[in-house]
């Protein structure tokens, strides 16, 4: 065992999830959050230590795991890189391509590793779909459909998630999972078209978007992202049609347990809907274990810094396309 020590920044849902996963992996973990009560709550649940300041957290860690609102990713990541700490950053990497590139460059210059936590790649149905494609079972990917339909996060008005200047909006926060997944399956994206309810009908307060991607390979992808479904929906679907076959998954069809109970338990969804699998493996723990292994063994992880930056560019292209009605090349976003 090398002596990695993780400092988790952020005491929200993701900070708590990561702290618990690190604890499960047996890695010493310290947490810092702007709101000390949040940090104390996570510490009480996970056994994490707490730090009194971001500086103290960074000083005491070998890996800084950033689980804060998106607009704070860049300054925290740059501070961690400056202190020569490895960086794990929640998706999206940043709010602009310039910030994303600055983070990548700073980590490279400091000689530290950077991982972007596109956890979707560690969900079992997603990983299996990728394996099926890699086996050649469906031939060359041609038409890909990915859907992520959730309810509006049960957060108060004014929460950072609802402020596009802080989160990038639903497209950059939620849809980016599948934008990364599409690129994982079919390679680099050369153009993005997108329509979103937030742009077309802002007065309705509905967050829902449909995007069409063209890949350099010639494949085309359709991606749905939504916060407009009724609670407790967290519906995901995957369809990858290729030259020789098709692979498909729909969370509505793939329910291993159904129940009709007179006293129904709560849905199990928290304030922010998440994808759930009835597997012993925990995608968040597997993700962090992969990042840790990549640091310890000097190997690549399933998601690279370049992947995180590419996903950010596709997401920014979708936001720009939805805003302007143009078809946007991810290479041209700022």
């Amino acid at each position: 065992m090398s002596g990695e020590r993780v400092g988790v920044v952020g005491g929200g849902f993701m900070g708590g999830t990561h702290a618990a996963a690190w604890a499960a992996l047996g890695v010493p973990v310290t947490i810092f959050a702007e709101d000390a009560a949040d940090a104390a709550g996570v510490a009480a649940r996970t056994g994490a230590a707490t730090a009194g300041s971001l500086e103290a957290l960074i000083a005491g860690a070998t890996i800084v795991d950033i689980c804060t609102p998106t607009d704070t990713h860049a300054p925290i990541a740059l501070a961690a890189a400056a202190a020569r700490r490895h960086v794990i950053c929640e998706k999206p990497l940043a709010l602009s391509a310039a910030d994303g590139e600055a983070i990548v460059a700073a980590c490279a210059a400091a000689g530290v590793r950077l991982f972007v936590a596109h956890v979707l790649r560690y969900f079992p149905e997603v990983a299996e779909a990728k394996r099926i494609v890699d086996e050649g079972a469906i031939g060359d990917p041609a038409v890909i459909r990915l859907k992520r339909a959730a309810f509006r996060p049960r957060k108060p008005a004014g929460h950072w998630l609802f402020d596009p200047a802080r989160s990038g909006g639903m497209v950059l926060d939620l849809m980016i999972h599948d934008l990364d997944f599409a690129r994982w399956i079919a390679g680099d994206v050369v153009s993005v078209q997108c329509r979103s309810a937030a742009n077309e009908r802002p007065e309705l307060g509905v967050e829902h978007a449909l995007a069409i991607l063209r890949h350099a390979s010639g494949a085309i992808s359709h991606v749905t992202g939504s916060w407009a479904y009724a609670e407790p929906a967290f519906r995901t679907s995957i369809e990858i049609a290729g030259s020789r076959g098709i692979v498909a998954y729909d969370s509505e069809e793939a329910r291993p347990i159904s129940s009709w109970l007179h006293a129904a338990p709560a849905s199990g969804q928290g304030a922010v809907g998440i994808q759930k699998s009835l597997t012993r493996e925990d995608p968040f723990r597997d993700e962090l274990a992969d990042f840790l292994g990549a640091i310890r063994e000097g190997r690549e992880a399933r998601v690279s810094a370049a992947d995180g930056l590419a996903a950010l560019r596709i997401g920014l292209a979708a936001v720009e396309a939805a805003r302007t009605g143009r078809v946007v090349d991810p290479a041209e976003v700022a």
Binding site: V143, I212, G218, S243, R244
Partner: peptide, 21 residues
């Protein structure tokens, strides 16, 4: 709209895949 001719291996006379917005 976007389209391609990847589906149905060995056939490329017309588009076999298409997405329309």
């Amino acid at each position: 709209a976007v389209a391609n001719r990847i589906l149905q291996e060995g056939f490329d006379r017309v588009e076999t895949g298409g997405l329309v917005a």
